[in-house]
Amino acid sequence: MRQSVNRQVRHVPAGREYLTFRLGTEEYGIDILKVQEIRSYEPPTKIANAPAYLKGVVNLRGVIVPIVDLRVKFNCVGDDGQAEISSFTVVIVLNVKGRIVGAVVDSVSDVMQLSEQMIQPAPEMSDALVDTTYITGIANINERLLILMDIESLMSSAEMGLIKQLAEQH
């Protein structure tokens, strides 16, 4: 039996700041408090048999950091199925539940402060067509849509396999 999903916008404190970035032609936003730093892209060391979106690992000041290409994960790639690396391509270094993870994006745009009134719920869509699990809402800013993403839930999901679930530790 399938549970119904509540599609309301999660409570957003007044004036929460988001780091905005591009994946393909779309603009996304994540909670700025999850961002540790932004780095220029450097090719990671590949890991055998890793999913296509897991580009590999890099050594960041003595810490081995997995690098996830969000463009590949969300299918924001070119017609050839490849995500191109340009001079604007960056890695957003995230601190997710105490674990450091890198996310490759096409470019970083801005840091934006959004009030709760600016954010609308994500549209209801069939889970078979579109996975909106990690979308917390959509903001309309000067006639452009900003997709707000719960980056912590995405990176710590069992599907990603990057962060051990608490249940596994007990």
Score class of each variant (00 low, 15 high):
residue 129 L to T: 13
residue 100 I to D: 09
residue 129 L to Q: 13
residue 125 M to N: 00
residue 98 G to E: 11
residue 120 Q to E: 14
residue 125 M to P: 01
residue 109 S to R: 14
residue 131 D to Q: 05
residue 115 S to C: 10
residue 111 V to H: 04
residue 120 Q to K: 14
residue 118 M to N: 03
residue 102 G to T: 11
residue 127 D to V: 15
residue 97 K to T: 06
residue 97 K to W: 00
residue 102 G to Q: 04
residue 112 M to K: 14
residue 130 V to K: 10
residue 109 S to V: 12
residue 124 E to T: 10
residue 115 S to F: 09
residue 110 D to A: 06
residue 134 Y to T: 08
residue 130 V to A: 14
residue 87 S to A: 11
residue 131 D to V: 02
residue 115 S to L: 10
residue 117 Q to P: 07
residue 115 S to R: 06
residue 110 D to F: 00
residue 99 R to Y: 11
residue 128 A to L: 14
residue 131 D to Y: 02
residue 102 G to H: 12
residue 109 S to N: 15
residue 127 D to Y: 14
residue 134 Y to W: 13
residue 89 T to H: 05
residue 127 D to G: 13
residue 122 A to R: 03
residue 132 T to Q: 02
residue 123 P to Y: 00
residue 100 I to H: 01
residue 118 M to V: 01
residue 106 D to R: 06
residue 111 V to T: 09
residue 102 G to R: 10
residue 93 V to P: 12
residue 125 M to D: 08
residue 106 D to E: 03
residue 113 Q to I: 14
residue 89 T to A: 06
residue 86 S to F: 12
residue 125 M to T: 14
residue 105 V to M: 03
residue 120 Q to N: 13
residue 124 E to W: 04
residue 130 V to W: 10
residue 87 S to Q: 14
residue 133 T to C: 08
residue 130 V to E: 12
residue 117 Q to V: 07
residue 87 S to F: 08
residue 112 M to W: 08
residue 119 I to H: 07
residue 100 I to A: 05
residue 127 D to F: 13
residue 89 T to W: 04
residue 119 I to G: 05
residue 92 I to Y: 00
residue 129 L to R: 11
residue 114 L to K: 11
residue 131 D to M: 01
residue 115 S to G: 13
residue 110 D to E: 11
residue 92 I to Q: 01
residue 119 I to P: 06
residue 107 S to I: 01
residue 106 D to F: 05
residue 103 A to S: 15
residue 104 V to Y: 02
residue 128 A to P: 05
residue 122 A to H: 02
residue 88 F to H: 14
residue 94 L to E: 09
residue 104 V to P: 02
residue 92 I to D: 00
